[in-house]
Lab assay of single mutants.
Amino acid sequence: MALNTPQITPTKKITVRAIGEELPRGDYQRCPQCDMLFSLPEINSHQSAYCPRCQAKIRDGRDWSLTRLAAMAFTMLLLMPFAWGEPLLHIWLLGIRIDANVMQGIWQMTKQGDAITGSMVFFCVIGAPLILVTSIAYLWFGNRLGMNLRPVLLMLERLKEWVMLDIYLVGIGVASIKVQDYAHIQAGVGLFSFVALVILTTVTLSHLNVEELWERFYPQRPATRRDEKLRVCLGCHFTGYPDQRGRCPRCHIPLRLRRRHSLQKCWAALLASIVLLLPANLLPISIIYLNGGRQEDTILSGIMSLASSNIAVAGIVFIASILVPFTKVIVMFTLLLSIHFKCQQGLRTRILLLRMVTWIGRWSMLDLFVISLTMSLINRDQILAFTMGPAAFYFGAAVILTILAVEWLDSRLLWDAHESGNARFDD
């Protein structure tokens, strides 16, 4: 018995066209964080690309023209004298008006014999932002004059995390709450300039795509075929072959399989920071003279006294001054041990922890910024005066060393310790 099946006739004509040209192939790229070699397709503007294995951002879609970056830099340069030299806060102490600005706080630190601690604050609040705007201006002028731009481009990517104007702005709020127990506070004209400078700096850093600047100024022929001998440069993120001198053909720094002496430098910085954190938390970090009496505060006791007036601000200072430094030390110690013992479990967790400490590390400088600003506000000789204690130097040095330890660690070593050939990683 035959089955009668109805015929289905399409209502619209289906047209099949042959592909007349070869589909576009992607360029081969190595991930600078996990060293995976993959094919990167062509990316349009405002599109980002991520590593298929570790999800690290390979290409950032946010990109401004150099002219727009230069305009932002010149605007920031105009704001800087007002943000640093004009009063941020006014207080009335014992019937006398006192003005506080950024430069005055750094000068008070240096004047009291601790120039190293003052230079830490100076670099993060004044030096690094000033280098940022002058570097962008150098790129703008240098591109037109045919100057060598490689050193500036190499420095810009590392400079971003040292620009800490946003953290200093939080420190202004913390210092205001600490001082309000002794005097009446009012915002100064410099505060508005400083807030504007923070906003412009944040926007500029978020749109400063150094890798795209490398592509514009020093374009290189990408690798179009897969080759395990391809290496990625950690300076400019170019994937290719080393030249005859073993250097990256684009930025001219040595092109090595792994960062040289990464573990040794990381261990040295980490152990030194552990040693410095002990006096930083045991010795007094601030000293207040009130009517001839002397009151010393460690980091913890200062947080407890701050909690009596504002528990939320005390929580912020606790996280930045105690929780973050010790968390960074514990995480980095764990990561280094996992590399030495070739741990194969929990790779995803370790990668996330490394990215976390990379982002939060700079916030530990908050305590030094609060001390710097408070020193310029309260300084009335023996009637009422505020000065920093010996722990300030140890704390600042420990924070900087932990930042350097994270920067010096080559994250690809975590993958080397893991089993080879993993296309995915999980716990």
Results as ranks from 00 to 15, higher is better:
3 L>D: 10
31 C>P: 00
34 C>I: 00
35 D>S: 10
36 M>K: 12
39 S>W: 14
49 A>D: 15
57 K>M: 13
69 L>W: 13
70 A>R: 09
72 M>W: 02
74 F>I: 10
75 T>H: 07
88 L>T: 03
91 I>V: 03
96 I>P: 04
96 I>D: 01
97 R>M: 03
99 D>N: 11
99 D>G: 08
102 V>Y: 09
105 G>Y: 02
116 I>S: 08
118 G>Y: 01
120 M>Q: 04
122 F>Q: 05
124 C>N: 03
125 V>L: 09
125 V>M: 14
126 I>L: 09
127 G>Q: 02
137 A>P: 06
139 L>K: 01
141 F>M: 06
142 G>R: 01
144 R>V: 05
146 G>D: 05
154 L>S: 03
156 L>S: 07
157 E>L: 14
163 V>S: 08
164 M>C: 04
166 D>Y: 15
167 I>H: 02
168 Y>N: 15
169 L>P: 03
174 V>S: 13
182 Y>H: 06
188 G>D: 07
189 V>S: 10
191 L>F: 11
193 S>I: 01
194 F>R: 00
194 F>A: 13
199 I>F: 13
200 L>V: 13
203 V>R: 08
207 H>G: 15
208 L>R: 08
216 R>F: 08
217 F>T: 12
219 P>Q: 09
221 R>C: 08
222 P>E: 08
223 A>D: 11
228 E>V: 13
232 V>C: 15
243 D>I: 05
244 Q>P: 14
246 G>H: 04
249 P>S: 06
252 H>G: 04
261 H>I: 02
265 K>E: 08
268 A>L: 01
276 L>R: 00
276 L>W: 11
284 P>D: 06
288 I>R: 01
289 Y>I: 04
289 Y>S: 01
301 S>M: 05
302 G>N: 01
303 I>A: 10
314 A>L: 07
321 S>T: 12
323 L>A: 04
329 V>E: 08
332 M>S: 06
332 M>L: 12
336 L>H: 06
337 L>E: 07
340 H>K: 08
342 K>G: 10
343 C>D: 13
347 L>R: 06
350 R>Y: 12
350 R>T: 14
350 R>A: 11
354 L>H: 10
355 R>T: 14
355 R>Q: 15
358 T>V: 08
358 T>D: 09
360 I>A: 13
361 G>D: 04
363 W>F: 08
367 D>C: 00
367 D>G: 00
368 L>F: 03
369 F>T: 03
370 V>N: 00
370 V>M: 04
371 I>Q: 01
374 T>M: 07
378 I>S: 00
385 A>D: 05
388 M>C: 04
391 A>I: 02
392 A>W: 05
396 G>Q: 02
396 G>W: 07
397 A>Y: 03
401 L>H: 11
405 A>N: 04
415 W>C: 10
415 W>L: 12
417 A>P: 11
421 G>I: 12
421 G>S: 14
